[in-house]
Amino acid sequence: MLQPVTEPQLAAFRLMLRARLLDDKFAALYRAGKIHGGVFLGRGQEALSVSVGLSLRKGDVFAPLIRDAAGRLAFGETILDAVRTYLGSSLGPMRGRDGNVHRGRPRDGLLPMISHLGAMISVVNGMLFAHRLKKISGTVGAACLGDGATSTGAFHEALNQAAVEKLPLLMVVADNQFAYSTPTSRQFACDELVDKAAGYGVGAHSVDATDLTACLKVVGTAAARARAGEGPQLIVAKLLRLCGHGEHDDASYIPPEMKNSTLGRDCLKVAEEYLLQQKWTDAATLATWRSEAIREIEDAVAQAQREPGPDPFAEKWNAIASEHLNETHPQ
């Protein structure tokens, strides 16, 4: 009989598992031709992502990127929101107007990413800046990126802006070795991405993203520092993407020796082995968690598949809120 334990790794692992199973389902639906457009998975990034989500509270701001299913669940996004968006249900948060990873609920602090990398960071800054103007204190905002996004002008402008305003921003960079197919050697020339923190005057944190315990500790520390008023914190996490850029990509450019290195470890397996080794849980409990998550995901998919897609004849083709200023054009 197991003793009840409340180690944070347990709750985190359970969310990682749900995210992995949700991603697996999306991959299966994609292969079955059930999803319009792309599918982007967080396989291998769950430990980092869940740590970001768990470091945030209600009232905080989260701008996830394409591999943050785990962080989204930890922040409070429902499986149904994710499934409805991927399947184009008109009842989902994006109502078929946008899809896949481009989903969110801005009023709840969850920002729906646009595709232009780095562009969400300054929006997080703006929300934190508004908190300051509204005299709301103690909140933080997290923006997630990959190594490729650090090459954009938007990244530079926004990190500098956050530093100048001393905003409680967590800039989380998942350095997964490839931006689509481009290796980091063609992306930046500094030794380590985290070295850039000094240039911006922000806190610097490095972590092995295959190690859940390390991720929870490092991200948690960074979030606490931001929350305490110490300004922006740059977190650079090293990992390998354990899938293609999207499900259309076979990732044949990733060398086998990299996959077989410690960098290529699967954070979910590493965490599972650790939890069992610590005797914080057992195989039967994990099997129950897995079947419960699968049931929840299958229910959500079954529900979303029965729901109507958007109706072009009922659609309000109106891009502005001021309806009286909407232009109509002959079709």
């Binding site: 701001v61 300054s122 703006g126 508004a130 938007a154 926004a158």
Partner: peptide
Amino acid sequence: GLAVGAAIE
């Protein structure tokens, strides 16, 4: 970008 975030708030 900052203006958009502030407007959301």
